[in-house]
């Protein structure tokens, strides 16, 4: 069990309101990801759920019971910190055993759970090392191991992969996703990397300045962003946002087209521009297109390899059914 409900939760640091009144329900077994730009209050929200910060007003329910005044230890949640927060003077085994030792789990059961976690996380060979003698990825797994053995109602992750290199990050992303499939425990995951959010989440919560901009499945957010902010934030590379006459032609203040929804044609495109930087990824190529008269720059995805060079003229056709329209308040027009 691990349903978490926030009702009208706010948080002030001194006079500054970091989280304005916020309602959110995280269902049991769901993998929920908080994304948003730096400083938008993701960590703060997670720490409020964990109980490491007191909420200023509102209620937090865990499995329907009021947990607002309950201490972090008693909420039955486990947290994995960005810095891993391993205990440096304890061996990996002792690190993983620590929460069980505090809970008074008997020795045989402790060993059983450590063995199980170590096998699942590929840590068996490192159990007697100190955290200082491990690589970043291994430390990360120890931190996860320490969280697993508590058999918590929910896991809280605060940017757990941001200290890892790109290849390792992809690997750990998969491992965490698999862990979630296997344990079927609620997970709340904070990141500012929208690729992580898209690939791992059942549900994404997009935050800006403490406000929830949109909640939905990754594809919901991709297909129907509720406003300009979400449209620009979800998707990689970013959606092209166009204002002015071209937008007016579609009866909107702003229109948005994703780079993958613009076709390159030989001649007579609706839009034309000059090719700038080309990012060749092998499978795809992203062209930066300038001088279109629509926006500073448009990004266009072309599958495979294309013979266009810096300075060439390029003709573009946006797919009509993939144009997102937004009004002057930035909200989506259906």
């Amino acid at each position: 069990m691990g349903q978490i409900t926030l009702q009208q939760v706010t948080k002030n640091f001194g006079d500054v309101q970091v989280i304005p009144p916020l309602d959110l329900t995280i269902e049991d077994g769901e993998f929920t990801v908080f994304v948003g730009p730096s400083g938008c209050g993701k960590s703060t929200l997670l720490r409020l759920i964990a109980g490491l910060e007191d909420i200023t007003s509102g209620t937090i329910l865990i499995d329907g019971a009021d947990a607002t005044a309950i201490s972090p230890a008693k909420r039955g949640l486990a947290m994995v910190f960005q810095s891993y927060a391993l205990y440096p003077h304890m061996s990996v085994r002792k690190n993983i055993a620590f929460p069980m030792r505090m809970a008074g789990v008997d020795k045989a059961e402790q060993d059983r759970r450590i063995e199980q976690a170590a096998t699942a996380l590929n840590l068996t060979d490192y159990l007697d090392r100190r955290p200082g003698q491990l690589s970043g990825g291994q430390r990360q797994r120890v931190a996860i191991g320490r969280a697993i053995v508590r058999e918590p109602a929910a896991f809280l992750f605060d940017e757990p992969l941001s200290n890892l290199d790109a290849a390792l990050r992809v690997g750990m992303r998969l491992e965490i996703s698999e862990l979630h499939k296997r344990l079927e425990t609620t997970m709340v995951y904070v990141t500012h990397d929208q690729v992580e959010a898209m690939t791992m989440a059942d549900k994404i919560v997009v935050l800006r300045a403490g406000n929830i901009e949109q909640v939905g499945s990754p594809l919901d957010l991709y297909r129907t962003p509720r406003n300009v902010f979400v449209a620009g934030f979800i998707g990689s590379p970013k959606m092209n946002l166009i204002e002015g006459p071209e937008a007016a032609r579609h009866d909107a203040h702003t229109i948005g087209v994703r780079p993958e929804h613009i076709d390159v044609v030989e001649t007579d495109g609706q839009w034309q521009g000059r090719v700038g930087v080309a990012e060749h990824l092998g499978s795809d190529t992203f062209f930066h297109v300038h001088d279109t008269g629509l926006a500073e720059m448009l990004t266009v995805r072309v599958a495979g390899e294309v013979n266009l060079r810096h300075g060439d003229t390029i003709h573009l056709n946006p797919r009509a059914d993939q144009i997102h329209r937004f009004d002057d308040k930035g909200l989506r027009i259906q």
């Binding site: 964990a50 490491l52 201490s71 972090p72 230890a73 949640l77 486990a78 947290m79 910190f81 960005q82 810095s83 927060a85 391993l86 205990y87 440096p88 003077h89 620590f98 929460p99 505090m102 809970a103 320490r146 508590r150």
Partner: peptide, 24 residues
């Protein structure tokens, strides 16, 4: 964060002092 981790792991203040602060 180490102290917070210990707090989440269920260590009361005295244990946090004994297991985390003192060794540090």
């Amino acid at each position: 964060e180490q102290l917070e981790a210990a707090e989440m792991d269920g260590a009361p203040p005295l244990s946090r002092f004994g297991y985390i602060t003192l060794p540090h």
